[in-house]
Amino acid sequence: MDQQTNDLIKNEIEKNDVCLFMKGTPDAPQCGFSMATSNILKILEVNFKGINVLENQNLREGIKIFSDWPTIPQLYVKSEFIGGCDIVKEMYESGELAKLFENKNISFKGKS
C-alpha cells in the first residue's frame, strides 16, 4: 500500500471516533453487508463517518492490508479495529456493541 493511502486511512480513523469503511455511503450502501452494518449504527443513533471504498481502488485494497482483514465493511471505534458485518451484528445482538460505545464514552441511543 502506498504512503498516501496509509495516511488517508490513519487520518480518518484518528479524527472520527466511529469510522466505517464501506461500499457506498450510509445513505446509499452498495452492498448488503455495508447496509446491515451502517443500519446497526443508525439504529443505535451513533454519530459515525462512512467512507466509500468504491471511490478509490487504492483505499479499497489498502484498508484490507491496514487491518489485515479481508472483507469490507470494517468498523473502527476510537482507532480500534472492531471487525466486519458478522462481528458487528453479533456484538449488537449480544449488547456488546452498546457496552463498547459506553466504555469508550461514545453517545448512542439510550445513553448520552
Rank of each mutant, 00 (worst) to 15 (best):
C19E: 00
T37G: 11
F66K: 04
I63V: 12
I82S: 04
N103C: 10
L59V: 10
N11W: 03
P73T: 13
K111W: 10
G83I: 06
E61M: 04
N39L: 14
A36R: 12
I65Q: 02
K15N: 04
K15S: 05
N103D: 15
Q3W: 04
N47H: 06
C19R: 02
I40Y: 03
P70K: 06
I13P: 03
E61Y: 00
V88K: 04
M22A: 12
L20D: 00
K15Q: 05
N47K: 13
I40H: 02
Q30E: 15
P29Q: 13
G62F: 07
Y76R: 04
E102A: 13
S107A: 09
E45R: 07
F66Q: 05
Y92C: 12
W69H: 06
T25F: 03
E93L: 12
T5G: 03
L44Q: 01
K89C: 11
Y92P: 08
V88T: 13
F33M: 13
Q4V: 15
N39E: 14
N52Q: 07
E55H: 05
Q4K: 15
V88W: 01
F101V: 06
L41F: 01
F81M: 13
K111F: 14
I106D: 00
I63D: 07
L44S: 01
G24E: 12
N58Q: 15
A28P: 01
A98V: 08
M1N: 01
N52R: 06
F33C: 10
A28V: 03
F33V: 12
Q74H: 09
W69K: 05
I87N: 07
L54D: 11
V46N: 02
D27P: 01
I40L: 06
V46I: 10
L97F: 03
E80Y: 07
S107L: 02
V88I: 11
Q3A: 10
L54T: 14
C31A: 13
D68R: 05
P70L: 08
K78P: 07
E102M: 14
T37M: 11
T37C: 15
I43V: 14
G83L: 06
T71I: 13
K99L: 13
N11Y: 05
N56K: 04
Y92N: 14
F108H: 15
G110M: 04
G62A: 11
G84A: 12
K64A: 10
N6S: 09
K104W: 01
F48P: 00
D86S: 10
N103F: 08
K10N: 15
K111Y: 14
C31G: 12
P70F: 06
Q57K: 15
C85T: 10
G32E: 12
I106V: 13
G84H: 08
Y92M: 12
R60S: 12
I65G: 00
E55P: 04
K49F: 00
P73W: 09
N39W: 06
S107H: 02
I43L: 11
T25C: 05
I43Q: 07
